[in-house]
Design a protein around this nucleic acid. Structure first.
Lengths: 160, 160
DNA sequence: CTAAGGTAGATGATGTATCAACGATTTGGA
DNA sequence: TCCAAATCGTTGATACATCATCTACCTTAG
């Protein structure tokens, strides 16, 4: 219908389609399962968990918004909205930054600390059960190699 | 801090953490890259694409809502909302089901057909470039084995 | 010192996913 | 035959991600 300016499409073979569909189903269902588990057992989303992990990685549980956005690879807007919601739930708090009048500091609250201390072991246990316990040593090595190689090629595909 | 009712947590070793983080980063960035490509080149989301693929898999481009929801593994509510939006964009249409008064049929429109015929080759090309071209034959086989094994264990983790 | 340009974060609008509740219809068993 | 239960799809509420835009503040060239 439209002119093919590039070469003929290299469609996937039946074999390749099967691999691709299996891989997609696995990643999708694994993410769902991890999210469900954390929501059900700890009342946190994966995003909440990531924020809390980043905060507990520092000695005082305090991180600049910009730094947090960078290390989570989130848009600053997404972070801002998310922190607002987490603040309403009492998991984090916000403070003015003493060294930069534009800045804001995110601080983990006691409630936030209790939440992640309860969530972390259960999350790790789930990851172990669903992934690490299922694979042999060799397969884990293969998974790392494969993931790293694909990831490498994605660096050139950044959002502009 | 809280009583450990289960055994000690089997935390991930540094090695395991590295594998896990690499795997998570890969799947996340791969999904983003695929979504961005389809949005930029074909003005479709991955979800739109999946719906259109399911519709073109039938001879008349018509599928019952319930069947569509089942084969996409979507909630019926999500499908309903999504189809409404796709209908507004002229990609699909809805009809009453002649054999079941409760039912609804989703039909692909000419515009929807043109959209997927343009999108499909570009999507396949991207999948090839980002994944299949990056891996050896052996690695593809390994990826299938690994994905299948993890997926198998997830069947028991269905949403209730 | 001041004006220009950059950076930090907040906000509102839009599109999307999930959940609970609902009305309509079909189905299966008494 | 008739009613209760199950199924089908829709709707509204809520939560989340992204985009464009905005304000406040910092930095630096002049």
């Amino acid at each position: 219908m439209t002119a093919e300016t590039t070469a003929e499409t290299r469609w996937l073979t039946a074999e390749e389609q099967c691999i691709w569909r299996t891989f997609l189903a696995m990643t999708k269902q694994l993410n769902s399962a991890l999210a469900r588990q954390m929501q059900a057992e700890s009342d946190l989303s994966i995003a909440d968990f990531e924020v809390l992990v980043a905060l507990t990685d520092t000695p005082d549980g305090t991180v600049r918004c910009a730094e947090l956005a960078r290390c989570l690879a989130w848009e600053k807007s997404r972070l801002s909205h998310h922190i607002t919601r987490m603040q309403k739930r009492g998991l984090v708090d916000k403070r003015a930054c003493p060294t930069d009048g534009r800045g804001a500091l995110v601080v983990i609250t006691d409630r936030g600390r209790r939440a992640i201390e309860q969530a972390a072991p259960r999350h790790v246990e789930t990851v172990r059960r669903l992934v690490f316990d299922k694979l042999t040593e060799d397969e884990l090595t293969q998974l790392r190699t494969i993931s790293a190689r694909i990831l490498e090629g994605l660096d050139g595909e950044l959002p502009e």
